[in-house]
Design a protein around this nucleic acid. Structure first.
Lengths: 148, 148
DNA sequence: CTATCTGCAAACCGTTTGCAGCGTT
DNA sequence: AACGCTGCAAACGGTTTGCAGATAG
């Protein structure tokens, strides 16, 4: 958990319910962890954290819950140099990720204007460009101050 | 194999040799496939293709050869929506990928000027930005004409 | 001639599936 | 009361490791 986070998880649980899924103890624990974290977590990390809240939790339930949250568009998989099996609350609208290489903190940003660039590449290559991935890596303020 | 490709593979084999590795039949077959393809291939795809050249090839050798080629910086892992276990000849210098969603063809491009954008995000977030990933997806000329 | 490489089989590890009992609704 | 959800154990699939024989240098 990172900070005092408002009930994002209540929203998620409501959405699960609206979509015909049941709200259970195990699911609550998983939702609470993922919804309030600012770091990409893989299934096992979610398991370990959520288990502290709901000790009887099984790893399989984590997988199944993540699957549902992803299907509802509430979380998304994050690609990083070492692995692409970690999840983060999904971006709202068109946003890109800024990841701290020190602490792993993840932040979304918008306002990328790649139209020029994309137009140029399209013209040069003949491709019709339909999507783009942009991700920035660096050090957050705290890690800049703290480390090296 | 995509087109008539010059002996990139000879360069790779020479580099393997210079680095104390041996040049063998199985390795030749793997190098030839990966060096001359314009599509990201996963280990099993490499195996199937290279096996046509060297039928006694084992999948394990493919893994071990890819590992060495990656260590030498000759190939790199490509991240795509569905998986990040495919390899491509590495970019020379600072380049980014343009991938065709139709045929899977991969092309590098340079001339991305993200300095403005990155400066803006750095200022706004306080991050010191050290790296960026940019990848474009679209349809190549052939696929635009051919499909849908 | 030696050290590396090879293919095979087995181990490994993250993920998925089958199932009987439990708990939401 | 019904059906979805749960945890366990077993299956699964891609990757890695151990090993004895083959082969590049």
């Amino acid at each position: 958990m990172t900070t005092s986070t408002p009930p994002i998880q209540e929203h998620w649980l409501a959405l699960l319910q609206e979509n015909g899924y049941r709200v259970t103890g195990p699911r609550r624990s998983v939702v609470e962890i993922v919804a309030n974290h600012h770091r990409a977590l893989n299934p096992y990390q979610v398991f370990e954290l959520a288990r502290q809240r709901y000790p009887r939790l099984g790893l399989v339930t984590v997988y199944r819950t993540l699957e549902k949250l992803e299907a509802l568009g509430l979380i998304e998989r994050v690609h990083q140099p070492h692995g692409c099996h970690a999840y983060l609350p999904a971006a709202v609208g068109h946003q890109h990720l800024l990841l701290c290489q020190g602490c792993g903190n993840a932040e979304y940003f918008s306002g990328d204007d790649l139209d020029d660039l994309i137009g140029r590449i399209a013209a040069r290559t003949g491709y019709q460009i339909k999507e783009h991935w942009l991700q920035l890596f660096g050090l957050c303020t705290a890690c800049r101050a703290g480390a090296q």
